[in-house]
């Protein structure tokens, strides 16, 4: 009974027992990752009084949707911020994919004469930076894009790490022979890039796209530096500025005295803060499976072939 499957599959996939062990490991891991999130979810639906009296709890004494009401009611800031974040993420990811894939492909080609030069061009910025003030100068003065959506998109578009990762994907999954034969068939370099090489590295592109999406989705630094109108405020910054302010007020409590307490009283309450965490994370979690299919596809392919 246990060996009802064909010998071919038997070697291809693992046995039942190793599978059980793996499942146990992954359940434990998944559990450790999901617990904090449930914790956050529970705080976001706790009543403020119960937080004040009993602190953070897994099962709050009293439930309340006040946090969500606070975040959603009164203005369309939340919707605006969703739109800003989504726009920035989409445009930035597409732009980034273009910059990264073109550069990575050129570097992946062993016969590219200026390979070394462009590699060094990409390595140095990973290490040396001019600091925040100098970057600010470029964006706000030189490019003059402060308080525009470009200030959220452009500074993060290129990324050397992602570029090198993609480069190594290309080197390992696109054999030189394929490029060579395409060229002999008379395909132009552009055609080779778009029609031959790119389709072969879809999992790699999906990885890079996912990283870009996450980077843009979670970014708040650029918003802090460059954005001054509410219309361009991304979602993450709504949350981070509350968090930053809470830690600042806690750190400076001694120096600020009563004024600190008054200032803290004006900040959104814990439940509202956690509500923002939930509201800003859930959409991106739904976006994840979209990318996921490119990572899991490969191994299903093997099964289909049989």
């Amino acid at each position: 009974m246990a060996r009802a499957i064909s010998p071919m599959q038997d070697i291809h996939s693992i046995g039942k027992n190793p599978n059980r062990i793996l499942n146990v490991i992954f359940i434990a891991l998944a559990f450790s990752c999901i617990i904090p999130f449930i914790f956050i979810l529970m705080i976001s639906i706790s009543s403020e009084d119960s937080i004040k009296e009993f602190g953070y709890q897994f099962i709050p004494q009293a439930f309340s949707l006040e946090g969500y009401k606070y975040v959603i009611s009164g203005s369309d800031q939340l919707m605006t911020s969703y739109m800003v974040t989504i726009t920035v993420t989409i445009l930035g990811t597409l732009g980034g994919l273009f910059l990264i894939s073109t550069y990575a492909y050129a570097l992946s080609r062993r016969d590219f004469a200026y390979k070394r030069f462009f590699t060094v061009i990409a390595v140095i910025p990973m290490l040396f930076g001019g600091g925040m003030v100098a970057n600010y100068m470029i964006v706000s003065r030189f490019l003059d894009i402060k308080d525009t959506i470009f200030a959220l998109i452009l500074p993060m578009m290129m990324n050397s790490t992602y570029m090198f990762v993609l480069k190594s994907f290309i080197t390992s999954s696109v054999p030189d022979a394929i490029v060579e034969s395409a060229r002999i068939d008379g395909a132009s370099e552009w055609r080779i890039f778009f029609r031959v090489v790119m389709p072969m590295v879809v999992p790699g592109l999906a990885t890079i796209a996912l990283f870009l999406v996450l980077g843009y989705w979670n970014d708040w630094m650029n918003a802090m530096l460059y954005i001054e109108t509410d219309k361009l405020m991304p979602l993450q910054y709504l949350l981070i500025r509350i968090e930053n302010s809470m830690s600042f007020l806690a750190d400076n409590a001694a120096q600020m005295g009563v004024t600190g307490i008054e200032a803290a009283a004006n900040l959104p309450k814990d439940s509202a803060k956690m509500a923002i965490v939930v509201l800003s994370t859930v959409p991106i979690l739904f976006a994840y499976p979209f990318f996921q299919k490119y990572f899991v596809k490969g191994l299903n392919l093997g099964a289909v072939k049989e």
Partner: peptide, 21 residues
Amino acid sequence: IKSVDFGDYNQKMQVVSSSGE
């Protein structure tokens, strides 16, 4: 009037004033 949150005020003002804006 440009309000900058408590937690970001230091950093933002350091950049603004150092950059000579």
